[in-house]
Design a protein around this nucleic acid. Structure first.
Lengths: 347, 347
DNA sequence: TTGAAAGCGCTAACAA
DNA sequence: TTGTTAGCGCTTTCAA
C-alpha cells in the first residue's frame, strides 16, 4: 500500500519539477519532457509512467512564473476598459473572458479611466501580459502610439484609430440604419437623434446611418433634432429636454446612441407628459438586460458586443502565436429586437 | 553630448537589469539595490545617480515575472465571480479593482460558473496569484475546502460558510429589515417576499429581516406571500405570478431580494393590470443603475457591495503581507433609496 | 559601499 | 531515449 503524501505536507511548499524528477529517479529535463508531452522526443513508457505517477503523488502543478520567465510567454492577456459598469463593456469583457479561458489564457482587466499612455504601459510592464485588448471610449489620438509603445501585440476594439491596423469593430452605421429604418417603416418622419460625443468614431457612423435611413425614406434631415447626449442616463435626459425645448412640435420618435441615454430620454418624456410609445417612440443601439427592464421595454438594435470581445481575444491570441499578422474585422450581425417602446406615430 | 539610445532599439528586447548595470558600470546587485531604494544599504550618491540615469536612458522597467519568481510574490490577486453581468458583482469587482490598483496589485477576474474545486485551483495554479477573493452565489459546501486547497490566502465575500474564518459580509438582515420597515411605515400590512434561492446564507438573512420588521409592526407572517424567485428577471416574474395566482387578495407591497427579480415582478404586475405604486409597492435590496431606469424608478436599499469588494481586497492584501491574520467584517452602511415604486397602500 | 555567487523553477540546445 | 548544461531576470546572502 502506497504511502500517499498530501501535497501540502512538503514543508508547505508546492512540489517543483525537481521534486517530481527526484521521486521518479530521472532528470528534471526528462520530467519536463514527459509532463509537457514533448512530441519530438520519444521516451520509454516506463519512464513516462514513473514521472506521471510521481507528479500525481506530489500533486505537482507547474509554476507558470518560472515557465513564463523561461519561455517569455505569460499566457495572460490584458484588457483595458474605460468603465466596468456599463452594458456594452460588460458584454465585451464577458466575451473576452470566455475566449481567453477557452484558449488557456488568463485575462487581466484594467480599468483605464482616461486611456493615457501610462495606463497601458503600466498594464504591460506590471504584469507582462502577452497581448493587449483595448476598448476605449473616447477618440484618443494617443491610443495608437501608447499601444505601440508597450511592445506587445494588441487589438483595438470598437474603434478604428489612425495608424492602427489591428482592430475589430462593429458595423455601427448599419445598426443605426436598421434602427432608424424601423422607425421610418412605422411611419415616423420627425426622428430625433441622441448622439454620443461629438466627433467620435462611432458617433460619425451613427449619424451616417441615421442620415442614410432618412434619405432612403425621403426625409430631409432637420439639424435641431440632433443633440449630443453622451452615454449616460443624465446626458440622455438633458439632451431630450434640449430637443423638446427647441421646437414646438416634438419629434415622434427618438433614436438614441445607447441604452443609458435612451433611459434618460424616456424619463424626460414621461416628465413632459408624453407617452412612450404612443406619443414618442424610442429605439436605441445595443441590447442588454436594461432594455428588458425598462417600462415600456425598449426596442433596440443588438450589436455583437460580446462577440467583439470574443473575436478580438481569439484574434489577439492568433497574433501572439504568429498564426496571423493582422486583424481587421467588422462584425455585422446586428439584430433588431422589437419590444414595446416603438409604435406607429399618433394620428 | 550623450548618445541616447531609444529603448526599443536594443534588439527589440526590453532592457534588463544587467543592461542597466553594464551601462552604469556597476554590478547587477548594486543596480538592484539602487532601483529598489534599499534602506539597509547606503550607497554613494554618485553610484545612485549613474544607475538611475542608466535606467532612464534605457527605459528600464523591471520584469515582474523574474521578480515574482525570485521573491515568490506575484502581486496579483484573483477574484472568482459566478457571473460577470450582474448589478451586484459588477460593484464588487469595481471595488476590488480599485483597491488592488491602489495597492499596486493586478486583479485577475475568473468567471466561475459553478464554484467547484477545480475552478479555484485553476485560478491559482495557472496564474500564481498571491491571494484569492471568492464571491460565490450558491451556498456551496465545497467552497471552503476548495479554497483551503489552493494554498494561498483568501477572503470570501458575501457569505459565511462553514469553517471559513476570513470573510466580509453585508448586513443583509438589517437591510431587509430596513426595506420592509419602509413598507410597514407606509401602512402596508400584506407584504409579499420574493426570496432568492431556498436555504442560502443570504436567503435566510433576508427572511429573518423581513420577519423582524413584520413582527415590529405587529403583523403576522403569511407563508403564501413568500415565494422563491432566484435572482433573475424571469424568476421574479414567475414568482410574482405564483403569488397573485395563490390568493384572491393580492399583496399591497412586495419586497424583492434583488433588482432583477423586482424588475420581473414589476412587469408581471403591469401585465396583471396592477399599478405600481398605486396598487402595489415594490422595494428591493441592492441599488444600481437599473433601479434608476425602471419605470417607476425603483425604491431600494443600497448595500455596500462596492465597499465589500474594496474592503475584501484590502484585507486580503493585509493577510498576504502578514499584517493581520484574520478577517471578519460585517459592512452595515445600508441606505434606503426612496424613488417612485413605493407609496402608501390604496384606500 | 560594492561585488561575487547562488538560486527561484523551468525549458531547450546539445551531448551522450 | 536520457542527462548535462546553461540561462530567462531578478534578489539576497555573504564576503570584501
Amino acid at each position: 500500500m502506497t504511502m500517499t503524501i498530501p501535497p501540502k505536507d512538503r514543508g508547505n511548499r508546492r512540489a517543483s519539477l525537481a521534486d517530481v524528477a527526484r521521486l521518479a529517479g530521472v532528470d528534471t529535463s526528462t520530467a519536463s519532457r514527459v509532463l509537457n508531452a514533448d512530441r519530438n522526443h520519444r521516451m520509454r513508457p516506463e519512464t513516462r509512467e514513473r514521472v506521471t505517477e510521481a507528479a500525481k503523488t506530489l500533486g505537482y502543478s507547474p509554476n507558470p512564473l518560472a515557465r513564463a520567465l523561461r519561455t517569455a510567454r505569460s499566457f495572460s492577456l490584458g484588457i483595458a476598459v474605460p468603465q466596468l459598469v456599463s452594458p456594452v463593456f460588460e458584454q465585451i469583457i464577458a466575451g473576452a473572458q470566455a475566449a481567453a479561458r477557452e484558449r488557456g489564457y488568463g485575462l487581466l482587466i484594467a480599468h483605464v479611466p482616461e486611456n493615457g499612455a501610462e495606463a497601458f504601459e503600466q498594464l504591460t510592464a506590471a504584469n507582462r501580459v502577452d497581448g493587449l485588448l483595448a476598448a476605449s471610449l473616447d477618440d484618443d489620438k494617443a491610443l495608437g502610439p501608447a499601444l505601440e509603445n508597450t511592445g506587445v501585440p494588441f487589438v483595438v476594439l470598437n474603434r478604428k484609430a489612425a495608424g492602427i491596423t489591428n482592430c475589430i469593430v462593429l458595423d455601427t452605421r448599419a445598426a443605426a440604419y436598421l434602427a432608424v429604418q424601423h422607425l421610418t417603416a412605422l411611419g415616423h418622419r420627425r426622428i430625433a437623434h441622441l448622439a454620443g460625443r461629438a466627433g467620435g468614431y462611432n458617433a460619425n457612423d451613427r449619424l451616417a446611418g441615421y442620415q442614410d435611413a432618412l434619405a432612403a425614406a425621403g426625409i430631409a434631415m432637420d439639424p435641431p433634432l440632433i443633440q449630443n447626449a453622451g452615454y449616460t442616463v443624465e446626458g440622455g435626459a438633458a439632451a431630450m429636454q434640449a430637443i423638446l425645448a427647441r421646437s414646438d412640435r416634438p419629434p415622434t420618435a427618438v433614436f438614441a446612441a445607447t441604452l443609458l441615454s435612451a433611459a434618460g430620454a424616456m424619463s424626460t418624456l414621461r416628465d413632459a407628459g408624453l407617452d412612450v410609445p404612443k406619443d414618442v417612440s424610442i429605439i436605441s443601439l445595443h441590447d442588454g438586460i436594461l432594455a428588458e427592464v425598462m417600462n415600456p421595454a425598449l426596442t433596440t438594435v443588438r450589436l455583437p458586443a460580446r462577440e467583439m470581445g470574443y473575436e478580438g481575444t481569439t484574434a489577439l491570441i492568433d497574433l501572439i502565436d504568429g498564426r496571423r499578422d493582422n486583424v481587421a474585422r467588422v462584425l455585422d450581425q446586428n439584430e433588431l429586437v422589437i419590444r414595446r417602446s416603438t409604435a406607429p406615430p399618433r394620428g
